[in-house]
Amino acid sequence: MEATPNTVTVNGAEIRKLRIQAGLSTTELARAARLSARYLNHLENGYRTRMRPHSYSRLRQALGLPADSTQLLSPTEDPP
């Protein structure tokens, strides 16, 4: 049995692009994903690049992406 990774590396520019396409503010998306707006802002701006899998899953769901989507991951990251 393979262990779940502790964190995943995300692509902040992609998060921002999808948020804007969805017509959401940083605060709205953060609330929907149960994240702080500051944390989401740090992800989008590249100050932070890693997320725990459960937070990543909530963000992916808030953006309406399917469970098997790897769109938010950094190009070098394997799916959680």
Results as ranks from 00 to 15, higher is better:
residue 1 M to S: 07
residue 1 M to Q: 05
residue 2 E to L: 13
residue 2 E to G: 03
residue 2 E to C: 01
residue 3 A to P: 00
residue 4 T to C: 07
residue 4 T to V: 15
residue 6 N to I: 12
residue 8 V to I: 10
residue 9 T to H: 13
residue 10 V to M: 04
residue 10 V to E: 06
residue 11 N to C: 10
residue 11 N to Q: 12
residue 12 G to N: 10
residue 13 A to Q: 13
residue 14 E to G: 01
residue 15 I to L: 08
residue 19 R to K: 05
residue 20 I to K: 13
residue 24 L to D: 06
residue 25 S to P: 10
residue 25 S to Y: 02
residue 27 T to M: 03
residue 28 E to K: 14
residue 28 E to S: 11
residue 29 L to A: 06
residue 30 A to C: 03
residue 31 R to M: 09
residue 31 R to Q: 14
residue 31 R to A: 14
residue 33 A to D: 01
residue 34 R to K: 14
residue 34 R to N: 10
residue 35 L to M: 15
residue 37 A to G: 05
residue 41 N to A: 12
residue 41 N to H: 11
residue 42 H to F: 08
residue 43 L to Q: 02
residue 44 E to S: 05
residue 45 N to I: 04
residue 45 N to G: 13
residue 46 G to A: 07
residue 49 T to M: 07
residue 50 R to I: 03
residue 51 M to A: 10
residue 52 R to E: 13
residue 53 P to F: 14
residue 54 H to Y: 09
residue 54 H to P: 03
residue 57 S to M: 13
residue 57 S to E: 15
residue 58 R to Y: 01
residue 60 R to H: 03
residue 61 Q to N: 14
residue 63 L to E: 05
residue 63 L to N: 07
residue 64 G to Q: 11
residue 73 L to H: 08
residue 74 S to R: 14
residue 74 S to Q: 14
residue 74 S to L: 11
residue 76 T to Y: 15
residue 78 D to G: 01
residue 78 D to R: 15
residue 79 P to K: 09
residue 80 P to D: 10
